[in-house]
Design a protein around this nucleic acid. Structure first.
Lengths: 199, 199
DNA sequence: GTAAAAAATGAACGCTGTTCAAAAAGTGAG
DNA sequence: CTCACTTTTTGAACAGCGTTCATTTTTTAC
């Protein structure tokens, strides 16, 4: 009976993680409580701290999952597209749709702040790069004249522009909250920027 | 000696407000504590709750001030500009510079969340409209063919695109943190979108 | 079977925003 | 000025939070 400890520990981590994820989905990041999570998991309050460093750690794990799913969703959406412009518009729409359909998970990605002085672990920062993964390449096809560094900057600019629109819309700030209206807006903006960038 | 009560109450509000504002400037929204504010004001903890409804109310007052200053800054920056494109680029740069030079105040505008179930007061939502005030008009000159409603949508899209870039940069997410680099990026993006929108 | 190692437990700690009974201060009439 | 009344100030108290830690329980290896 070797490895029973590790198995139980891994099972506990998984249980706490999935419960936390579901809690974020249903009640949002702001309503995550250590006591709620452990109560629902049927374990003691302290067990959370043998499975994870602290709540920040636990939430980062949730966000890590979300980023992976988001990345897969975007990658999958651009599979059948052939023109670079098509890829970019499709990726932007996929991003927007994911945010809209998984509002609380998506908001947690950007609302979560580490406690004072503790930096976000490097491996998790790296995970955020999936957000550009599908942008830099098609943009490179459109602008083969640009040096890689400049291309990366433009890709980030494009992403940030789309992100800003999705953000203000999902938050219900100023912008239309309706999904279809936002989709049109995102397609419109993406095309505008592509045209502007490839002139 | 009439109105001494009102005067003291107003003075207390002003004192707590300015101290809170300074605290946000120096330590950020996340580090605002009722006990710190009242201690620095030299009054009892409970006094905060006769001057303001709660911490959310106090923070909204700070944000209200910030929005007013931000609005004035943008309005002032576009005074001498004559072409619509010039106005838009200048306003975008002014927005970015304000965010950069008043990072904590600016972040508080978008980081602050009301407690569960309590909506942001309508008058404060209205204050956010200063952010477009200087966008819709010059855009209307460039696109006199568009109906007002469509124009408003485009203005919001433009603002959100710029906002997204400023946000990710100020947060140090992905994008360049250097001020001059961001400025170039903002000018570039704004021009791209103007071109794309006025084709 | 037994001793060492790891994990689970939940009471306790320190901090938070908010409340509220009591004390203090301001107000207006006589 | 005095006195009743109203409003504000006060800070102890409360409920809730994340986190810690001595104690107990479980797992491991011999």
């Amino acid at each position: 009976m070797i490895g029973k400890r590790e198995a139980k520990k891994a099972a506990m981590r998984e249980k706490l993680l999935s419960i936390t994820r579901q809690h974020v989905v249903q009640h949002g990041l702001a309503n995550i409580r250590a006591r709620d999570i452990t109560a629902e998991a049927g374990c003691a309050l302290g067990s959370l701290y043998t499975a994870f460093d602290d709540l920040d750690d636990l939430i980062i794990q949730v966000n890590s999952q979300t980023l992976q799913e988001l990345g897969e969703r975007i990658t999958q959406s651009v599979q059948a597209k052939d023109t670079p412009a098509d890829v970019l518009v499709t990726a932007a729409v996929a991003y927007m749709e994911f945010a809209y359909e998984n509002r609380n998970l998506w908001e947690a990605l950007f609302d979560h702040k580490m406690k004072e002085g503790i930096p976000v672990p490097e491996w998790h920062l790296q995970e955020h790069l999936v957000l550009f993964k599908n942008i830099a390449e098609p943009l490179g096809v459109l602008r083969s004249d640009l040096p890689p560094e400049e291309l990366a900057t433009q890709a980030k600019t494009l992403f940030a522009a789309i992100h800003g629109n999705v953000l203000l819309s999902v938050q219900g700030r100023f912008i239309a909250v309706e999904k279809e209206a936002l989709k049109l807006q995102i397609v419109n903006l993406t095309q505008i920027i592509i045209k502007g960038m490839t002139r």
